[in-house]
């Protein structure tokens, strides 16, 4: 099943008063006796750019991994678009429109930038064993249309000159862009970003930020783990603060600054 099918078939229409697209209840994750995530409850609002901050070891990335299905929770329930997805694997959630990026560059190194982008397009008739056996005539039209979308995206992120370079040969910042673009090609409803600006040149980081705002304005839901408070301050509303595997607070950045516990978490971290 592809994301588009899912959207039309199982996703309920947005209900008034229920703007929550992704909800986690009682999330826990233990690593050999160490509790990385300890009873986290989250509710991510539809069409919001939510920030997830906290000191090192707060459990932010683990929480994001659990939401995306790449990490199995020890306990807890995740519901996405009104459906319990706790048992659904990573690829199933991705097809349903819940996508993540990684803290470490995770581009497909020996695929070109364009191939990276095309690889995540859902519904390609040539992306199955039998579809591929039927030959290029079966999938070329779809592929051309996907190529148009990819070109537009490359122009938007100004990576068109690198379209046919191996993704593994790009700079660190460009690779982050490839990963974000690749996630966008999958037509996500919710994007989970793990420090998308880490190791990126400040100018490029600013551009990524602008793109994220634009995506949010287009109606996309984004949850973003970030270390840099100034970035969170500019982009995110609301902001969720984690420390020691728990959610400390969920407010606007302005309100958080008044909150001594949050300030302490950061100073102590």
């Amino acid at each position: 099943m592809r994301s588009t099918d899912f959207q039309t078939s199982t996703e309920p229409a947005p209900q008034s008063g229920s703007g929550i697209i992704l909800r986690a209840t009682g999330l826990r994750r233990d690593y050999d006796g160490v509790r990385a995530v300890d009873g986290v409850d989250l509710a991510i609002g539809r069409g919001r750019l939510t920030g997830l901050i906290g000191p090192n070891g707060a459990g932010k990335s683990t929480t994001l991994g659990i939401l995306a299905g790449t990490i199995e929770p020890t306990a807890g329930i995740i519901s996405y678009a009104g459906r319990d997805v706790t048992k659904l694997g990573t690829h199933g959630r991705a097809r349903a429109g819940l996508l993540r990026t990684f803290q470490q560059a995770s581009e497909f190194k020996r695929l070109t930038v364009l191939e990276n982008l095309l690889s995540s397009v859902p519904g390609n008739p040539g992306d199955s064993l039998f579809g591929a056996l039927r030959g290029p005539r079966h999938w070329r039209q779809f592929e051309n249309e996907a190529l148009d979308t990819a070109t537009a995206l490359l122009q938007r992120f100004r990576l068109e000159p690198q379209a046919n370079d191996y993704a593994g040969n790009l700079s660190g910042g460009q690779r982050r862009l490839v990963e974000i673009m690749r996630a966008l090609m999958a037509r996500p409803q919710v994007l989970l970003l793990d420090e998308p600006m880490a190791g990126v040149h400040p100018k490029l980081a600013r551009e990524i930020g602008e793109h994220l705002i634009a995506l949010r304005d287009d109606g996309m839901t984004i949850l973003m783990v970030e270390h840099e408070l100034s970035i969170v301050d500019q982009l995110c509303d609301p902001v969720i603060v984690m420390a020691d595997g728990r959610v400390l607070a969920e407010r606007s950045m302005f309100e958080l600054r008044q909150n001594t516990a949050v300030v302490e978490a950061y100073l102590a971290g």
Partner: peptide, 17 residues
Amino acid sequence: RSLRAMRDNDLAAASIG
């Protein structure tokens, strides 16, 4: 292409569906 993507990074391949 998706097989080669999987070869390069299976976790990332799973995360795009």
